[in-house]
Amino acid sequence: MKIPLRAMLPALAAVILLGGCSNASEAGPATPSAAASPAQPGKPWNDELKNAEAGEKVGGTGSPCQLPVTFDVAKGWKPKPVDVGTGSGAGLDALAHQGGFTLKCEIDGKPAGFIGFLRIWAEDAPGKSPRQALEAFVAGDRNVTEKTYRDSGPLQGVEVTYLKDNKALEMVSRARALAVSTASGVVVLALGGLDEEEHQQMLPAYLTAKQSLVTN
């Protein structure tokens, strides 16, 4: 018998917080990014969706999160910096490291009515291309299936969308992430969600950040 999703929220808190680490299948060979791929309406990219209304700007001097990139946050979403250590211990500090990246900023969708976060991750050891770094980031997630990559301009970034099939909780969720190069290394902008429906509803907020993103 499936347990209603909303009734499972307390148990899912750690799952929502971060994707975790391990057991993604290997992606294809890395290729250099170029211009953005043509628009693709419908799943998995949903390019027909419009941006959410912009609120505050995040990333620059004086913003809640000091980042190598600056972008608009959807109205009602609340950013906060994440201060973590080496991730060598247990608990949330360890979960803030994934695939060679460290979590730097979380933008909470709950004040805007969504159960999910937009997260910004910074590369620990710069030197990879956006595609190589993004593949490593995805490989650090858990239960990954159906990965699809594409080029995403105008910053010559690379974008991925994939499913996360958590058989233990009998739920499938979707994630999406954008990787771009900065002077400090690759930065990943990532969106998750409790389930695919919640993810779909949060995509306009992701698009607001993605389409306004510039490097500092």
Rank of each mutant, 00 (worst) to 15 (best):
S63H: 12
P68A: 03
V69W: 07
V69F: 03
T70K: 15
T70I: 11
K75F: 07
W77A: 03
P79N: 05
P79Q: 05
K80I: 02
P81R: 11
V82P: 05
D83T: 05
G85Q: 08
G85W: 09
T86R: 15
S88N: 14
A90C: 14
L92D: 02
D93Y: 12
D93P: 08
A96Q: 10
A96S: 14
H97A: 04
H97Y: 01
H97S: 06
G99E: 04
G100L: 06
G100E: 10
F101E: 01
T102Q: 15
L103H: 03
L103R: 08
K104T: 07
E106A: 07
I107N: 06
D108K: 12
K110C: 05
K110Y: 08
A112M: 05
F114S: 06
F114H: 14
I115Y: 00
I115W: 02
G116D: 02
G116V: 01
G116E: 01
F117T: 05
R119T: 04
W121A: 01
A122M: 04
E123S: 03
P126M: 07
P126G: 07
K128Y: 06
K128M: 13
S129W: 05
S129R: 06
P130Y: 01
P130E: 03
Q132E: 15
Q132R: 15
E135K: 11
E135D: 13
F137D: 08
F137P: 09
